[in-house]
Simulated scan of single mutants.
Amino acid sequence: MTDRSSSTDELRFADNEAGLVPVMRVLRETFCLPLEQAREPAEVLRRTGLVGTSVERELIADGLRRRSVATGIRRR
């Protein structure tokens, strides 16, 4: 969930119309973040994609799939 320049993959929305609420919920549940700290990475995911470890990306993607938000991994 951090910007790691050494990582080559990023988690992105498959559909740009996904809302921030389900993303923020997943981030809050997965990483025990307060609401105000979940907003920034949710915005980053929507704008440019999230870079992180493969485990972080998979945890977020799995949570989003459970909320019917399609994601994909893009090679950078």
Rank of each mutant, 00 (worst) to 15 (best):
R76E: 05
E56Y: 03
G49Q: 04
E17L: 09
S68W: 04
R74C: 03
D3A: 08
S5A: 10
M24D: 02
A38H: 07
V23T: 13
R12W: 05
A18P: 10
E17V: 06
M24K: 14
M24P: 10
D3Y: 13
G52N: 05
F13I: 07
V69M: 03
V26K: 02
G19S: 14
V55R: 10
A18E: 13
E56T: 00
R25H: 12
E17W: 05
I73M: 00
G49T: 05
L50A: 08
G19A: 14
S54R: 02
L64G: 01
A14Q: 11
L35K: 13
R28P: 09
A61P: 04
L64H: 00
L59Q: 09
D15P: 07
L59Y: 04
V21Q: 12
V26G: 01
R39N: 12
L35I: 12
V69I: 10
T48G: 09
A18I: 09
T8L: 02
R47C: 06
T71F: 00
T71P: 05
R39K: 14
R66H: 07
P41S: 11
T48A: 09
D9C: 08
R28Y: 12
S6F: 09
M24I: 15
V26M: 03
R65G: 00
R28D: 11
T53H: 01
T8R: 09
L45M: 14
S54E: 05
V55P: 01
G72V: 05
M1S: 12
D15G: 06
R46V: 12
C32Q: 14
I60L: 01
C32W: 05
